[in-house]
Design a protein around this nucleic acid. Structure first.
Lengths: 353, 353
DNA sequence: CTGAAAGCGCTTACAG
DNA sequence: CTGAAAGCGCTTACAG
């Protein structure tokens, strides 16, 4: 591989002499200080352009602020929406967003210990990090404190006694609302596909599901409750199994839109019509929800907003502001579309509003 | 808004005295130079940690290299796959990827002229940029040269006489293969939805389409050829219009997977069965292609690979390597799935292999 | 508005 | 292995 050092660095001194001014004047012109004649300023600019002078990064003014967003999966709509929100909020305040993967192997250099990503971020000059759906070990936290590197978690796996601030959404309410919507339509055999069991978000939704079932005086069939991952494939596999059984659920709540699409595909394979034979509720409300046939009823998670809030919280920490709260929860919202309806052979109770 | 300057900066001198060593020794310890006793190294590390010393970014060693990836749309699967490829390739060589939008308004500072994004990138210390589906004006190019900022375009809108290297895929072949697949199945009324007319990629595919029609001795019905954008909505709208006509196409080639999903939805609204009543070909082969019902036949574009190649080409330029070629085209590949088949009332000619 | 001088935070030979 | 000395690339008062 080629050497990373390019042509010999141009110095400001060279620029100054090329422009026929002194070093200090060139410095002032470059940094837009007031007391410099317009014509001088121009001459310096010309010299800078011609010589291709590149100021040594941040020797002078405040370093450009860079926030690292770490994700485990680079290609989920979930991550993309959050990233988008963070990027938009970052643009507003002139901060850059660096994206990287969380669970990658340690870099070749071998100098970093197993989880010295915190040290890596600090060494790279990041002013902070936003980490999606991860678990921060206490050694990571210690390291972060050492490096004075603020971090905000989004949908952390464990909330625990951690001192690290986090952003999420009202998962319990999301699970509850989705379920209540179905019970009001008259469903009494509802399957619930959760996300990864390690995720507090996934568990909270499941609790919401159970609470709504309890409210509707439905006993939960544990055969139709499962934790898995958020993928299309998992939704397809779980639903395919459930729908093959004797007395399958009349409605299924998925843990993501992708999962819900998988559930719909399973229904098709079993020649079931949605929503007549099976109601399906998705989660997130990313753009694919409206591409489904019929369009997906789902719990909307304000993913972009979460990205924005995380970024602003992080920058607040960087600037030494007091946090108003360690954990922020943004509201979810049930979006009713065509994939849910009353079960075929049942008289619905009260109808959903 | 709060001030960006935090606690008074700790200097290496302070660290050195806290550790009870001289400044040079502290410097060497910090930079992992060889001739420093292990115990001394430790003492310095402790002092650094306790004082929270943050080295001024890149005063010393080679600045960490940052590549900016600029996109116009932050949420297309196309952009995400390319970004993913670039990120993976960047990780391998310890380079960071910053993501930003291309068509955003000028930042508030107001100091940058309309298109001085080039100056912004240089000022932010980026070592180069990868720009997706954009057109570089000559003033932009001039600026890039001035700033010595290498740029690689992916799927540029205009190839023109530009000196800027670019990465794309074999669009003409992609359009040709998709069409040939359909003509071999026996289709003779094929609609072709293109991308933005400004895009050379979109035009190349359309030429491929026409060439394949000519080969099959089919006269192209101009009513069924259109340039639009790559969205689901456009696919839905165009197909809906075409399918409402007297003698609708028996097959439609879309310009993206999203567009193809829109076409399939339009078919459903017209109560057409895919592929019996209408064959649909998508473009890109992102993960949603296999979610469609039936799964989408499409032209696979090696988007991740394109991102990787663009990044490597860019880093080559940064290191002053000679480019072997100004424009790289990666191969597309036809992936046949369930959304295409012979037209209903026609005897297919030769069958597709 | 300009530039000689002092200073800053660091690194790099080099002498011990 | 350590540190006094020189040097680097820049910025910041300050005198003109």
């Amino acid at each position: 591989m080629s050497t990373p050092d390019r042509r010999p660095k141009i110095t400001l001194t060279e620029v100054a002499s090329a422009a026929g001014v002194s070093l200090p004047t060139a410095s002032k012109a470059l940094n837009s200080h007031p007391g410099v004649a317009l014509e001088t300023r121009h001459r310096v600019q010309v010299a800078v352009d011609q010589l291709g002078y590149v100021p040594r990064v941040s020797l002078n003014r405040a370093a450009p602020r860079i926030v690292e967003v770490m994700v485990d999966q680079l290609t989920t709509n979930y991550a993309m929406e959050v990233l988008r929100g963070a990027t938009l909020a970052a643009e507003e305040v002139g901060v850059s967003i660096v994206i990287s993967r969380f669970n990658r192997e340690a870099p070749k250099s071998g100098r970093l210990q197993p989880s010295n990503w915190a040290a890596r971020l600090a060494a790279a000059g990041r002013c902070g990090a936003i980490i999606l759906t991860a678990h921060l070990r206490s050694e990571d936290q210690k390291r972060l404190t050492l490096e004075h590197l603020p971090v905000v978690l989004i949908d952390p796996l464990e909330l625990g006694a951690t001192e690290v601030p986090s952003v999420g959404s009202t998962n319990w309410a999301g699970g509850y609302d989705a379920t209540e919507h179905l019970t009001r339509l008259g469903h009494r055999r509802i399957g619930s596909i959760g996300g990864r069991r390690a995720s507090v978000a996934a568990r909270a939704r499941m609790h919401g599901f159970r609470a709504a079932c309890a409210t509707a005086e439905i006993s939960v069939d544990e055969a139709f409750v499962v934790f898995t991952d958020f993928t299309y494939e998992s939704g397809l596999a779980v639903a395919d199994k459930w729908l093959s059984q004797e007395d399958p659920p009349t409605a299924i709540i998925a843990a993501s839109d992708a999962q819900a699409m998988g559930v719909m595909e399973a229904a098709r394979r079993h020649a079931l019509v949605i929503p007549d034979d099976l109601s399906v509720v998705g989660y997130d409300d990313t753009y694919i929800a409206s591409w489904a046939t019929p369009p997906l009823t789902c719990v909307r998670q304000p993913l972009q907003e979460m990205g924005k809030v995380a970024l602003r919280t992080l920058l607040g920490m960087v600037d030494g502001e007091e946090l108003t709260s360690k954990h922020v929860e943004l509201a979810t919202e049930l979006v009713v579309r065509g994939s849910t309806g009353p079960p075929r052979h049942s008289s619905p109770g009260r109808h959903d509003r």
